[in-house]
Design a binder for these strands. Structure first.
Lengths: 328, 328
DNA sequence: ACACGTAATGTTTTCGTAAACACGATGTAG
DNA sequence: CTACATCGTGTTTACGAAAACATTACGTGT
């Protein structure tokens, strides 16, 4: 910076002003400085800048398993929104959904110095024990809605309700449910909405089968359900598990949707190409990512706090995997 | 830090030594400092530390479309390996695979100050024009192997060769190919290996169909191929496109693998649950991620340069989507 | 007993930048 | 024509930590 200042014949403070796009610099001076910067290949030092401003221009994202489609999409969307706002993303993946892992991730982010944190798909975290300084802005995506932090999520209940209602409307007596893991808030809310909808419609509630979001777990659940006589409609809590169910039905010689209707949740890009194309619930991850960043920036800039919770509406997409039950 | 020093009755320098785990500190002193730190909730300031050390403890990852399974997995693996090495990840997603976008991402990372950069799935980049300072360590994953930067990648040629050989061995006269986009290095190498293998076996080389990695593009290619009489074996450059091909075959009433054999590439976790379960090439992304970080750290620490290129061996996984051609 | 190495700690300086403050030149209102 | 705001710019200082260097208190070999 000193070199640039010397070359341009100005003080380093003027260089700083140009670098930060302040408007109280004469145009000719600005041009000279810019030229000098260009010539010397000057790059501002983020560390020094952060040291003096106390802002880092970075937001941390803590996410579990980016191999999962939804998490990856959320991450991508948050990153896009952050970049547009001039922030970079400090990503921490956590392998195990344990308190220790999350706490370590948070500690690491604190050290790395971020201006705020987005927590994606947190499961059953005892939030108070995370030891985050109260000044650290946090937004939770796809997690517990019960605690103090602002929350952005899909309206899981609405989505699940629309699927179940769709299946009941087709004439199925009841709908079986393959749920996500016990400790997932999203899974729990989908399961609750499933049950509520059945009860409201006067349909019998069958026991829930639990998976872990993978196609394999869906397949195992599907093998069980293929043996169940009145399982003519199955709602899997995500598309991967639905795919596993489809596979199990094929192997058992049960036709979808002739004998059994199957629906998923997420609408992964591949869902229209499953055999048969999958009826599912579409979620717009970009909107969620954008909302997360918006809420976080509000906190960072200590602006008036907007809505503490944002629910994004999912939409039911009916494809070929659901149909009326077989006439027996 | 000064407060901690005062509280512990030592100099700030000693606090610094304790914070950095230097060994030339008396145990009793260390304990006092640690207690003071704990009590005051002291957190070292990363910006100040980076300013004086010149190291940031962060590596940048530039990746295209984390919605794609392979990219997301690579990111996750790099993040894991980086965390283990004490580095955090500064993630930059780029929407468009244009030079401008990549250059902007790099510039942003330079400003954010990272110690090195991992570039994932770069396509056709004119690397010299990226304007990276020559001192910035870079590793390219899944990209061009021709330029100056160290490269980590799967042995795409070997993988593609094994698939094509497998299909020819089954008795197919030739193998059709649904390729990834023109500007993808990975796609190009798979296509080249496909052609080489056919030529070496004396099999006729049919025109390539191009997709864009999506299931939809595979579906469109599949619709075309379903009309082609001698298309009894199809090698899609990834599993999503293979899924699209499967779908197209089902719709056209062609049985897989009875009439047509289909193989993919990647071995996504869902591949075993496709209809039928997909023969494909398995890739271990964790190994790639780990290698990327290793190579990058070697550069960062200016240790002796290890191998400039690392190729990870993929393995063929034969499932139910490939079989001998129909006897006609 | 002396020179000298070593362990533990303190003192000073440095990193690159932006904020706070100061200053002169110009414009403008009374 | 003076008082006082405004604009463009320069000067000084602070940010928080670690590196470089200095110092003290002990050995230990000769």
């Amino acid at each position: 910076m000193a070199e640039v200042a010397a070359k341009a014949g100005v003080s380093s403070q003027t260089v700083s002003r140009v670098a930060n796009n302040h408007d109280n610099v004469d145009e000719t001076t600005r041009a000279k400085v810019l030229a000098a910067m260009q010539e010397l290949g000057y790059r501002p030092n983020a560390a020094a800048r952060a040291l003096v401003t106390g802002r880092f221009g970075a937001i941390g994202v803590v996410s579990f398993d980016v191999g999962a489609h939804g998490n990856a999409r959320t991450l991508g969307a948050v990153a896009d929104a952050a970049r547009e706002a001039g922030f970079s993303i400090n990503f921490m993946g956590i392998r195990a959904q344990t308190e220790a892992a999350v706490r370590q991730a948070f500690r690491h982010l604190m050290l790395q110095s971020v201006d705020g944190i987005v927590l994606v798909e947190s499961q059953m975290l005892d939030t108070p024990s995370l030891h985050l300084p109260p000044t650290m802005p946090v937004v939770v995506a796809d997690g517990d809605t019960g605690h103090a932090y602002p929350n952005v999520d899909f309206d899981q209940a609405r989505g699940a309700q629309s699927v179940v209602a769709h299946l009941l409307d087709l004439g199925h007596r009841t709908v079986y449910h393959v749920s996500g893991p016990h400790d997932s808030f999203a899974a729990r809310r989908r399961a609750e909405a499933w049950e509520r909808t059945l009860v409201a419609a006067g349909a019998p509630v069958r026991p829930v089968l639990y998976g872990d979001w993978t196609a394999e777990s869906g397949y195992l659940a599907g093998r069980t359900l293929a043996q169940v006589r009145d399982a003519t409609a199955i709602f899997a809590a995500n598309d991967q598990m639905a795919l596993g169910v489809l596979r199990a039905m094929h192997e058992a010689g049960r036709s979808v949707p002739g004998d059994v209707s199957v629906a998923g949740f997420d609408d992964v890009p591949e869902a229209p190409f499953f055999e048969p194309p999958l009826t599912t619930v579409h979620q717009d991850f970009d909107v969620v990512g954008r909302h997360c960043v918006t809420l976080l920036l509000e906190q960072i800039e200590r602006r008036s706090n907007g809505p503490r919770r944002l629910a994004v509406e999912p939409t039911l997409v009916v494809r070929a995997s659901t149909a009326p039950p077989p006439a027996h």
